[in-house]
Design a protein around this nucleic acid. Sequence first.
RNA 1: GCCCCCAUCGUCUAGUGGCCUAGGACACCACCCUUUCAAGGUGGCGGCACGGGUUCGAAUCCCGUUGGGGGUGCCA
Length: 425
Amino acid sequence: MLARHEGGEFLLRIEDTDTERNRPELTTNMLDMLQWLGLKWDGEPTFQSDRGELYKAAAATLASGGHAYYCECTAEQVQARNKESGGKPGYDGFCRDRGLGPGPGRALRFRAPDDGETRFDDLIRGEVVVENRNIEDFVLLRSNGNPTFLLANIVDDADMQITHVLRGEEHLNGTPKYLLLRDALGFDYQPVFAHLPLLVNEQRKKLSKRRDDVSVADYKARGFLPEAMVNYLALLGWGPPDGVEVRPVEEMVPLFRIEDVSPSPALFDIKKLTFVNGEWIRMLAVDDFVQRAREFTDSPALEALAPLAQERVKVLDELPSYFDWVDGPAEDPKSWDKAMKLANAGEILDEITVAYTDAAWNRDELHARFMALAEKLGVSASKVQGPIRVATTGRMVGLPLFEVLEYLGQEETLARLRKARTRLA
RNA sequence: GCCCCCAUCGUCUAGUGGCCUAGGACACCACCCUUUCAAGGUGGCGGCACGGGUUCGAAUCCCGUUGGGGGUGCCA
């Protein structure tokens, strides 16, 4: 798939589409992801099937030039022969000199050199040298006629004059093959290589789609901000020279140099991502926060209490638990037990359930009366708020109590307190 | 098996021969602040994998060992 940067400054080619099955939805997902992350692009995606003739021409050049040959071995046959000769994987060159022509069931293989070495410079890893005899005869054209990734890769790169080949370390081994193909095809083409470190899981294995959480859509659904995601991703394998880690991409771009990227694998640490996300949430303008928070809660109290929630939440999907008291105290037996088992829980509720009319029902007044009550009962303020909090919101933890009570209003608050008192008795 | 890559606190990193008694961030712990929880503040815990060289001097350079990862597909 191809995507051109907005300013036309560079051409980004993303190779993710299966050349054989050619599933467009993969491309669509990727474009959605890029957009969410704020990476601009334009231009229409290009599929490999649109460029088939180019690959076939290259394959023909290779075959007629003696750089490739047809092979009718099946995977099973190769495997069986390898097993017999000592279990070494890789193609054994069985059809190398059989002079087979094209035909059904026959794949085209590259004839790798028997000697010499292939070397290249990598911005991140320095010089990499591989002896050609360690490179086996890999497939160029499948028996169904479709080109493989490697062939499409070099043809596209040379054709588009790709300047920078930046990819994961898993492609490091493929690079000598890529270069061998380039030379066999006679291309005058020399990109700059940079093989980036792999992202690994807790077991230090390469992050895989099958067993790890790698879908950006999932992080989006959980309430991670794209700003935080990009920010955190940039921190893997790299650190800003001034040490300021939480900052917008625009600020990191001028600081970033691909050659400063670390060559060793990095662990994707959800804890730090969460921290960065919390920082970004707190940096949001309140109305922006409210807008984004709306995806996660439909509470009518959101607008009124947004700044208080904004300061507490690290991931947006925590929001519901901060606002589930609006229609009545949340069901949370643990909180109830913890708060109400206090010896003087009943006494606290008795004292606080008295209405007042000599002052406005607001945070400051509630606070003042609450403090007076704590002093009167000779109990710490933090102890006193427990029963009240649970009686009104159902939970032991949550937004600051008096703001919540102010929002609830005197009538509703007192009703909840009395109800709790009855239940307690 | 073979080939390639990698190796600083638990994690992400700074460090490119003396500014290193190895710095920062996350996490963790303690204290402060405080109506809960957060946020904020202060402090703490914690690392150059090992062994040889080179050098007046090595986390930094070289070699080896060990450990980890990747590749070894008619996947990309």
